[in-house]
Design a protein around this nucleic acid. Structure first.
Length: 452
DNA sequence: ATCGGCTCGCGCAA
DNA sequence: TGCGCGAAGCCGAT
């Protein structure tokens, strides 16, 4: 039986005799998915059929065709994998708050399950759905190893306050996944085949930002990338992870963002392996503590993407320096087209727009400079969010919001010596980068001539 | 190359 | 109430 601490009631409702449906949204995979496993557990207990549905929104924040293309190809794989398990899958187009209740009514659904996500839009969708239905409605935390609401009951101050709580809870939650069974009860009634090209037509996003070629979407590709990372790169992770000229990071974040890969699966495989101990520890710290801290930040902070969400000391010090003169000021277009005086920053921006994934260390430098070169912290956040959500495959995610808040607003950080514009927010410099890695090599690798 | 000081506030020990 | 210490740093002194 699946640990009930992973499950929360969104609506008590009144159980009906009908099938169980899992409304998939954040965790777009068939294997290692606690929400799907929970849905099947309930369906088997009630001896009813099981279906999965995804609602494709016409647009989502600043997402482009780059993201929709990646997502839709992943969902086609989900459809195939579910078919093998005799579980029907449906992709609806439009507003989840309308489409999901309509589906519940159409099929006489008995119980509805969804996966956990703390961001505002999913929160609104959940509310609308809960209002419109009268059956039990549950959410399952399929993203975090320790369920977000169990790990901590409040907004954590830093990694060091969450870390011991996670550590204490891991023996209970870092467990093997049961296998999804071929579902023994056949779905009755009509459940039409998905016409993917029709689904594509309902999308209203920027078609100009194209898909990227270096990464393949889907669960199978994700598993393969995980195996490769563990075999070839993990042992040098500790040494090389903060050097953007080395290929030492996992590049798994797009998979983790779209849910093609479960962080718990990654943790299990990394723990099992015999890679260098220090590297494993460093990687697991990022994968578990830092990642789950991001969900904690967004879950317990309505202002996760604005100035109001910063800690008091940071708001005060940024306010004290609002009127400081800025030596460089750039427009959104300057930033977007990598037209600043700083070739290192421009290289990072180009890495983002071309590849859909900037190196982790450069993301910090990139964010710090947005604070330095815009006229207010608010404009810095707006710019950072727009670019991050528009270009990064792993954008529109709690990690991104927490990361930007760390750069600009001192979230999960401490005060540092006061200086212009930044106040007591941690500063980062070109010279600092120069002392840590080969800046020129990174610039060369992302030069304007280098192309896509 | 390495070191100390810079600085805030949480959590825990007492 | 005091104390230790924290995601990735910077800077100047040695």
């Amino acid at each position: 039986m699946i640990n009930r601490k992973r499950v929360r009631v969104l609506k008590t409702g009144k159980k009906k005799a009908g099938p169980v449906v899992y409304w998939m949204s954040r965790d777009q995979r068939v294997r290692d998915n606690w929400a799907l496993l929970f849905a099947q557990e309930l369906a088997l207990r009630e001896k009813v059929s099981l279906g999965v549905v995804f609602c494709v929104a016409p647009k989502f924040l600043d997402a482009t065709m780059r993201h929709y293309g990646f997502m839709l190809r992943g969902l086609q794989e989900v459809e195939e994998s579910l078919r093998e398990k005799h579980i029907p899958f449906s992709a609806l187009s439009g507003a989840a708050g309308v489409q999901i209740p309509a589906l519940v009514k159409r099929h006489g659904v008995g119980t509805l399950i969804t996966d956990f996500e703390p961001l505002r839009i999913k929160g609104q969708w959940k509310k609308a759905v809960a209002r419109a239905i009268d059956i039990p409605f549950y959410e399952v935390d399929s993203r975090n190893i320790v369920p977000c609401w169990i790990a901590s009951p409040k907004r954590e101050y830093g990694a060091y306050t969450l870390r011991p709580k996670i550590r204490r809870a891991l023996p209970e939650f870092l467990e093997d996944f049961p296998t999804l069974q071929t579902h023994p009860i056949t779905w009755k009634g009509k459940w039409g085949k998905i016409n993917w090209s029709e689904v594509k037509k309902t999308i209203r996003v920027d078609q100009g930002i194209s898909e990227v070629g270096w990464i393949e979407p889907g669960e199978n590709a994700a598993r393969k990338a995980l195996r490769e990372f563990i075999r070839k790169k993990l042992s040098s992770y500790q040494q090389g992870r903060n050097d953007p000229t080395k290929d030492a990071q996992s590049n798994l974040s797009p998979y983790l963002h779209f849910g093609h890969l479960s962080a718990q699966r990654v943790a299990l495989e990394v723990t099992k392996g015999d890679a260098d101990e220090e590297s494993r520890e460093a990687f697991l710290e990022e994968l578990i503590v830092r990642r789950e801290l991001s969900d904690n930040f967004c879950f317990y902070n309505d202002h996760y993407d604005s100035f109001e969400g910063f800690p008091e000391w940071a708001k005060k010090t940024l306010n004290d320096h609002r009127r400081d003169p800025r030596e460089y000021l750039y427009s959104l277009e300057d930033f977007e087209h990598a037209n600043t005086h700083d070739q290192l920053w421009n290289a990072a921006q180009r890495e983002m727009t071309r590849k859909g994934k900037m190196h982790g260390y450069m993301r910090m430098y990139w964010g710090k400079k947005l604070l330095e070169w815009t006229k207010s912290p608010e404009e810095a956040i707006r710019t950072a969010l727009y670019l991050n959500d528009r270009y990064e495959l792993d954008g529109r995610e709690t990690n991104g919001y927490a990361g930007i808040a760390w750069c600009i607003g001192g979230v999960h950080d401490r005060a540092w010596p006061e200086r212009p514009i930044f106040g007591k927010i941690r500063y980062m410099s070109y010279n600092g980068c120069k002392s840590k890695f080969d800046v020129m090599a990174y610039i060369k690798g992302n030069s304007p001539q280098q192309g896509g």
